[in-house]
Amino acid sequence: TEYKLVVVGAGGVGKSALTIQLIQNHFVDEYDPTIEDSYRKQVVIDGETCLLDILDTAGQEEYSAMRDQYMRTGEGFLCVFAINNTKSFEDIHQYREQIKRVKDSDDVPMVLVGNKCDLAARTVESRQAQDLARSYGIPYIETSAKTRQGVEDAFYTLVREIRQH
Rank of each mutant, 00 (worst) to 15 (best):
T1W: 06
K4L: 07
K4S: 05
L5M: 09
L5A: 01
V7E: 04
V7A: 11
V8D: 02
G11H: 15
K15Y: 00
S16C: 00
A17G: 13
L18I: 04
T19H: 04
I20S: 01
I20Q: 00
Q21H: 14
L22V: 05
Q24R: 03
N25M: 10
V28L: 04
V28C: 00
V28N: 07
D29M: 04
D29V: 04
Y31I: 14
D32T: 11
D32E: 15
T34G: 01
T34V: 00
D37C: 00
S38V: 11
Y39E: 01
K41V: 10
Q42T: 03
Q42I: 05
V43F: 01
V44A: 04
G47P: 08
T49L: 02
D56G: 02
A58N: 14
A65W: 09
A65K: 05
D68W: 02
Q69E: 02
Q69Y: 05
Y70R: 05
R72P: 08
G76K: 03
G76R: 07
G76F: 15
L78W: 05
L78T: 04
C79G: 03
V80R: 01
V80P: 02
A82W: 03
I83N: 00
N84Q: 00
T86F: 07
T86P: 08
K87I: 03
I92N: 10
H93S: 06
Q94C: 04
R96T: 00
R96Y: 00
E97D: 12
I99Y: 02
K100G: 01
R101F: 04
D104C: 05
S105E: 09
D107Q: 10
V108P: 08
P109V: 05
P109T: 02
G114C: 13
G114M: 14
G114Q: 13
N115W: 05
C117K: 11
A120D: 13
A121W: 13
T123K: 06
V124P: 14
R127F: 11
R127N: 10
Q130H: 03
Q130N: 12
D131Q: 12
L132C: 11
L132Q: 01
A133W: 12
A133V: 08
Y136N: 04
I138L: 12
I138C: 04
P139D: 13
P139G: 05
Y140F: 12
I141N: 13
E142T: 13
T143K: 09
S144P: 07
A145W: 08
A145R: 05
T147V: 12
R148A: 10
R148Q: 14
Q149Y: 04
V151D: 14
F155Q: 01
F155V: 15
F155P: 09
Y156L: 13
L158G: 06
R160T: 12
Q164P: 10
H165I: 11
